[in-house]
């Protein structure tokens, strides 16, 4: 407390401007990547203008921005099913994944039986199964959610199971010496210890479920951003593809950001270093 007030008092004394703004050196990690991205955009624009590259091959960033502004209502409408399906499959994959990991942790028989099969499934190109889901569930949102859940479920199970297994062994022994029940040692020790691993699985699952939904929309949809991108590419509307990609990237980044933010919140609560 005393340190804090001393610091804030010290800040008051510093001339205006010096303390408020971080120095250039401090901003370097933010400025450099942004500057790089900006340079790439400028170069892109210059190349398009100087070499008169056809719009179909590579529209200039300004053209893409214009197109984005023009078709934004359509894109937002298409973005709704994509976002909803992604969130739904992410939630399903996380819930089922953590649930199965708990079962695997407490039943050695099921663990020995299922875990190697789950790991083997990780290696299999699950994408190839996408058309099967269409055969089974039709051209519906359910089929895309089912496929996407299927694709993003495995990383959650495996990282959660590894996390539960990796909980500090001597702390678990302490619980046993205190005659703690399985449920107590799970709730008080295993689960909090596994949270970082669960979150790293969930972050992978978040990107995978967006990918799963996009693939689903590529092969079967009548709506959604994946459908729109394929539709635009068949009509060679490259600027529209880029505009749709931009919206999709924003959605992907926002969803990922939400999970990362939740992780930070949890990390602060269970803060450890």
């Amino acid at each position: 407390m005393t340190v804090e007030t001393a610091q804030s008092r010290a800040l008051d004394l510093v001339p205006f401007g010096a303390a408020q703004f971080p120095s250039l050196r401090q901003l370097r990690p933010v400025l450099l990547p942004v500057a790089t991205a900006g340079t790439v955009l400028l170069l892109w624009q210059a190349v398009c203008l100087v070499f008169r590259i056809p719009h179909v091959i590579l529209p200039a960033p300004t053209e893409i921005a214009g197109e984005l502004w023009r078709i934004l209502p359509t894109l937002l409408k298409e973005a709704i099913p994509t976002t909803l399906d992604s969130v739904a499959s992410f939630c399903l994959a996380s819930g089922l994944g953590v649930g199965l990991a708990i079962v695997l942790t407490y039943s050695p028989l099921l663990r020995d039986t299922l875990y190697p099969n789950l790991v083997a499934f990780q290696l299999v190109p699950k994408v190839a199964l996408a058309p099967l889901f269409v055969v089974w569930l039709g051209i519906t949102s359910e089929s895309r959610i089912a496929f996407s859940t299927f694709a993003s479920f495995f990383p959650v199970v495996i990282s959660a199971a590894v996390g539960f297994e990796g909980a500090d062994a001597s702390t678990l022994r302490l619980c046993r010496s205190l005659t703690a029940t399985d449920w107590q040692s799970f709730r008080l020790v295993r689960f909090p210890f596994a949270l970082p691993a669960i979150f790293s699985g969930m972050k992978i699952a978040m990107t995978m479920s967006v990918i799963g939904v996009i693939i689903g929309e590529f092969i079967s949809a009548k709506a959604g951003l994946g459908f729109y991108i394929l539709y635009a590419s068949s009509r060679m509307e490259t600027a529209a593809i880029f505009a749709a990609l931009f919206v999709l990237c924003m959605i992907g980044a926002a969803l990922y950001g939400a999970v990362a933010l939740a992780e930070r919140h949890v990390r602060r609560h269970y803060g450890r270093r």
Binding site: D168, S170, T171, S177, L178, T179, R272
Partner: peptide, 19 residues
């Protein structure tokens, strides 16, 4: 036959819960 609450154990590392 198993752990008891009448026995307290201290381990080599402090095994404190970090959070």
């Amino acid at each position: 036959a198993g752990p008891r609450t009448s026995i307290g154990i201290m381990f080599q590392d402090s095994t404190l819960l970090p959070w």
